[in-house]
């Protein structure tokens, strides 16, 4: 953080010294809103730097850019069900969605359990979490959602340490066939074999991760 600030100052100084200030900002304005400007408007729901205050709004700060971009595109084209995001995503161009995804991916993830609001949120049931640990292993969720769902890559969002109420909503959505939540084939097959009760236990397991 400290180093970043120094870098910014040097940059400002550099532009001024080179007399490039006006030219550079004119082109920035033409290029549209900056990633920071766009991302800051989301913080009212997703929290400063994408760290949600819970209990149901997901933390998106630190999730993989490719996943976030894909999800925004799916909200926009209507293929991913949502309460509100389908409406909001229509307000952004593909380029802006990519900027948003990139901006949020660069923030540092903070697990729900380490957030001060976790004490006010729906409590994690340790017995359910333990049952969920076994269930997700036998259903092979951990083939992709490795390390208790803490792992992430381009196509796999981190689910370990997410807010419990959000995970519970998503599990309900996944079991609601009418919603047709987009998901990889192997996940669809795994979900089919699990009951909503099983998925609830798995949600408690993922939410318990720090």
């Amino acid at each position: 953080m400290h180093r970043k600030k120094i870098h910014m100052l040097v940059l400002v100084g550099g532009f001024v010294a080179g007399g490039l200030l006006s030219g550079s900002t004119a082109s920035a304005a033409e290029a549209g809103a900056t990633a920071a400007m766009l991302a800051n408007t989301c913080a009212g729901c997703h929290g400063t730097n994408g760290i949600s205050g819970g209990p149901a709004m997901p933390t998106i700060g630190g999730l993989p850019a490719n996943y976030l971009k894909t999800v925004m595109e799916q909200f926009k084209d209507g293929s991913r069900p949502s309460t509100i995001m389908g409406r909001l995503a229509k307000g952004y161009s593909d380029e802006e969605n990519a900027l948003l995804a990139d901006a949020f991916s660069k923030f540092k993830w903070e697990s729900a359990q380490s957030h001060p609001n976790s004490k006010k949120a729906t409590a994690i049931d340790p017995a359910l979490a333990a049952k969920g640990a076994e269930l997700q292993a036998s259903a092979k969720c951990d083939k992709c959602h490795e390390d208790g769902g803490v792992f992430q890559d381009d196509d796999t969002p981190r689910v370990g340490g997410q807010w419990l109420d959000y995970l519970l909503f998503k599990m309900q959505d996944l079991k609601n066939a009418a919603l047709k939540v987009p998901q990889p084939k192997k996940m669809e097959t795994a979900i089919e074999k699990l009951s909503l009760e099983d998925l609830t236990a798995i949600a408690h397991f993922y939410a318990s991760k720090k």
Partner: peptide, 21 residues
């Protein structure tokens, strides 16, 4: 109804995040 119920919970979440912001 389940969407209305989710939005009720998201309302509280909105509040928690915007107040933290």
């Amino acid at each position: 109804d389940f969407v209305r119920a989710q939005e009720a919970v998201y309302n509280e979440s909105w509040y928690q995040s915007i107040m933290a912001d």
